[in-house]
Simulated scan of single mutants.
Amino acid sequence: MRALLARHLPDYRVRTVNRLGHGLDNFVYEVNDELLVRRSRVADPQANRQEVARLAAVRELSPLPVPEVVFADDETGTIAYRKLPGTPLNHHLHDNHQPGDPDHPHHHGVGGTLDPAPLAEQLGTFLSAIHGAIPGTMRDLAPLDVYPAPTLLQDAALDYQDVAPHVPEQHRSLVEHFLSEAPPDEPPSLRFCHNDLGAEHILVDPQTGTITGIIDWTDAAITDPAHDFALIYRDLGPDLFTRTLTHYEFPVTKQDRARILFYARCALIEDLAYGLSTGPRHYADAALAHLPWTFTD
């Protein structure tokens, strides 16, 4: 990592390099508490170039800050960004209780001193701007993601077989009922989406409660906009989801809501399986904490 930094930033003094964590596809390092460097497990030069161009376009679209690229190394699948202020929103959620804890009812999501009203307004305005991009203009910057709902449901059922013993017994019927239902219809249209808008990718100022940045655009795609709302529902709860819709400029139909719930539930099962196998445990802990509101209509 130091050699890579020296090659691209020869006059930059590197004092500290800390590995922050990893996901399914990337490792992330923090340099001098100023830069974040994301390195792919498997380098894809074309995908790297596409992401740099995509971030430049997103910076023009988004009313919220997004990462600014400092340098990119396509051969190693590396992109360095200036670190945005704030802390991930998942640090401010009620994730430290067990599902069904009477002290934290399932309709709660955002905790501490954070006010859900400004968060919802910022998210609704942000999603309006991103989803409002003309899909054709973004086609060269983001792949098409049209994973069929029946296949998603099959994947969720397979994941559930592995994690069912970890789901509290009083909630298993909720998940199993969902897995037995028919998947929703496919979306009538596709839009440019962040496509991984979990709470860990939303930065907030803990003092003011405002959003300071939206990070990790690796999975951005032309896809069903319900995917973006699904992770808001899963991670932040139905109350903040409903508030966000009041600031969203496009209509959300009954069919859209059905797909949002469907994607939220599939994503929760996927995170639970990931956190209990190869991923960080906090993914599983959050999934279990959010299971009641995600699987309760």
Rank of each mutant, 00 (worst) to 15 (best):
P85W: 08
H106Q: 13
P238E: 05
I232N: 00
T218L: 14
T137I: 13
M1N: 10
L144N: 12
L245Q: 10
A199N: 03
H290V: 04
A133P: 10
R243Y: 02
P165C: 09
T212Y: 01
P251A: 10
A157C: 06
I214N: 02
H92W: 07
P88W: 05
R38K: 15
V252I: 15
F178D: 00
D185A: 15
Q46F: 15
T218I: 09
P280G: 06
S189E: 15
P65M: 06
D74T: 05
R243F: 01
Y233T: 06
Y248S: 06
K254N: 08
P238R: 08
T223S: 08
D256R: 00
D33A: 08
D25A: 14
D228Y: 08
K83V: 02
R41A: 14
P148M: 01
R41T: 09
H97G: 04
H131E: 07
D103K: 07
V42D: 03
E68K: 11
R2P: 06
R265H: 13
T253D: 11
L203C: 07
T113M: 13
L288H: 08
R13K: 14
G23L: 06
E270T: 11
A267W: 09
R234W: 08
P116T: 10
D159E: 12
P238T: 03
G112C: 11
D145V: 00
D162I: 14
D155V: 08
S173W: 03
Y283I: 03
E68W: 12
D155W: 01
